[in-house]
Structures are given as structure tokens and as C-alpha cells.
Amino acid sequence: MGRYILKRLLQLIPVLIGVMLLAFLLNEIAPGDPATLLAGGESATPEKIAQIRAELKLDDPFILRFGDYVKKLVTEGNIGISYKTKQPVAAEVAHRFPQTFKMAAISAVLASIIGIALGIISAIKQYSFLDNIIAMFSLLGVSMPVFWSSLLLILFFSINLKWLPSSGFSTWKHWILPCVVIGTSMAASIVRMTRSSMLEVIRQDYIRTARAKGQVERVVISKHALKNALIPVVTNIGMHFGVLLGGAVIIETIFVIPGIGKYITDAIRNRDYPVVQGSVLVLALANSFVNLGVDLLYAAIDPRIRTQYRNMGKAKKKKTALPLGGKAA
């Protein structure tokens, strides 16, 4: 297993290089010029613009700039300096990413607990009144735009009841509304995934075997069915979590939370290329770790996947060993 993890970590290197190249290229072909914006817009003098272009080395060829960026990254661990604020991107990301991570993590945990629980109930009480109610709420959760539900919740809990603050991020109370909004919309999709996955597993022969052993229904569901049904659900949660790490721009904007989503969108608008570049790199890294976590979780749940991972490590050895020792074996 350690071998597998090492292999996955090594795979990160080409992935990150690819991500950097893509982000660089996108900035390159995107319309607009950061120098013009920094110089004060269309009214700026050509001399001023040229001076800024030279300062930012924007006139250098693409390959040179990319090489320079990678060199700085590797030697200094510098992921870029903002054109606009002249501050290192790393510092700003280090300040903002924890907020986004906190929001994503709380929402994901909340959504998983609610989503899986309701999904199980829905599945074991298929077509019942309860199932219909849950289906209705999950449909509502999936289809309701988050900005709208956020505004409704603010209106109700912050303005009418005055229970919770409407914006900011300093106390735990501030986190309730944004996390509930994200959590419920995520829970809605987890409910549906859990329900369909459970329904499929419950019909399997081994569930009948468990019942034929005289096992009580509660254990049949929790031990035999749920664990088997969890794999697609874990994928779903991991995917959502990855997206959330990219920042929930709308939520961050509504609740005035300095997260990474808002940082990136502002940077794109300002043509602040190093910021986009650096943040995307950090996000790619974070997403890769989430994916690795999900894959390891699969292995923890399913022994068949464990065997597969173990064989992946061995496969290479066998290939090299065959020409020499193939016949002897």
C-alpha cells in the first residue's frame, strides 16, 4: 500500500507541470492586457504601458517566462508575485485557503451525515410517504440556486429573527448559514446517490444470504448493505469536496468570506496572471490530494480494490522479471 501511495505522489509531478502549462497558456490567449489595466486603463500613455510591460517582463517570449516561473517555483518555492499588490501569492493563498477549506470541510461533513442517513431511510422505505418527502426535498435542494436559498436564509435568520450574522467569518455563528446552504445542496445529491446505490445492493444475493443467516435487519442494512453501497457515494462526496475547495464564489461573495474563489475571480478580472497561476497550482495540488484520499478510502472499504492496488505495485516487477526468470518458474 505504501508503494501505491508513493507511486501516486510521484504521479503528481507531471500532473502539476501540466496544470501550470495549461494555466499559463490560458492566461496567454485570454484577451486583455494586464499592463494597460495597471497603467490606469485605455487612457494611459503608451510610454507608461511599455514601462510596465518591461517591468513585468511581459515582452519576453512565452517559453522564457514559463521557464522562469518554474525555476522560481522550484528554487525559491515562489508561486508568484501579484502584479497588482506586489505581494507574494503564497502569503495571500495561505491566508485565504484555510477559510475555504474550513467551509468546504464543514459543509461536506454536514452533507455526508444528512445525505447518507436520509438516503438509507429512503432506500429501505422505498415508495413510502417518507421516501417521497425525502425525494421532494432532495429535488428542491438540487434545483434551488444557492444564491437564492442564501438570501432567503439571511432574510429569515439574520434579519427577521436576528439569530445569526449575515456576513463575515470571525465566529462559529458566521459559518452556520454558508455551510448550511452549501451542505444542503450537496446533501441533496448525496441522498439520491445513496438511495440508488443502496437499492441496488439490497437486491444482491449476499443480502439475502445475510438474512438467511438470521441476522437482524438493522445489521443487514448497516453492516452488509451500507458498506457495499458506499463506494459511489464516496466518489460523489470527494468530487463535491474538490469543487468546493476551488471556492464557492457566490457563497463567498454573499457572505463576505475572504475565500480562494473570490480571490481567483478577482484576479482573473484584473488580469493578475501570477495570482491566477499560483492559486490554480495550489488548487490542483489540493484536488489531487482529495482524489488520493478518495482512492485510499475505496481501498479501506473494498478488499478487491486493495488487491488491485497491491498488484499495481507488483505488475512492474513481474514485467521485468519475466524475460529472465519466466521459464524457470
Binding site: 444482491q204 444475493d205 449476499y206 439475502r208 444470504t209 445475510a210 438474512r211 438467511a212 443467516k213 438470521g214 441476522q215 437482524v216 452488509h224 458498506k227 457495499n228 472499504i301 473494498d302 478488499p303 478487491r304
Partner: peptide, 22 residues
């Protein structure tokens, strides 16, 4: 539940799917 698995037990048709894979 007390009868199943102790007094009356069953061997199922398809062994491939009758055991919990995990």
C-alpha cells in the same frame, strides 16, 4: 430470525454472488 440460520438454512444457487464481497 432465530429459526433462520440455525434450524432452517439455505445454500443458494449462485456462489459467485451469495457471499458479501467485502
Amino acid at each position: 430470525q432465530k429459526i433462520r440460520g440455525s434450524k432452517i438454512t439455505m445454500i443458494f444457487q449462485d456462489p459467485m454472488t451469495s457471499l458479501n464481497p467485502i
